[in-house]
Amino acid sequence: MTVGIPGAGLGGLFFVVCALLTIPVELVRTVLGRSSKARWRRAVHHTALATSIIVVLGATYWCLHLILPIARTTTHASLSGIPLASALMTLILVALVLALAYVLRLVLGQRGRGDTRDS
């Protein structure tokens, strides 16, 4: 099953970012002696797919920017038609959602420890 709306939304961006991070993660694992050729192959594969997705997404916005007048009025701070502001805002939103989940964990962790002490 796919939760929510596959493709669009924060979930899609989250997995693209995760795919882009596979090479740095594998670098760390290599240094720690926990990597393998198979894992490196997967990391390169995921990074290639994620990079292609970003390039295609950029090209789509660029085409829209050229073709549609409304795209020119709604994409702020664009660089060659690529809506950097929108992309940044979405990334910040992903970070906020993840931070919120982390804060929830910290708060509940504290409360859990407090409960244990009380009991």
């Binding site: 939760v3 929510g4 709306i5 669009a8 939304g9 924060l10 979930g11 989250f14 992903v94 959602v97 993840l98 919120l100 989940a101 982390y102 929830l104 964990r105 509940l108 962790g109």
Partner: peptide, 20 residues
């Protein structure tokens, strides 16, 4: 909540499922 990647996946999935 103590499982970082699972927590993150579920958090963005909840966002997508509701807000998205």
């Amino acid at each position: 909540l103590p499982h970082p990647f699972l927590r993150s996946m579920v958090a963005v999935a909840c966002w997508d499922a509701v807000i998205g």
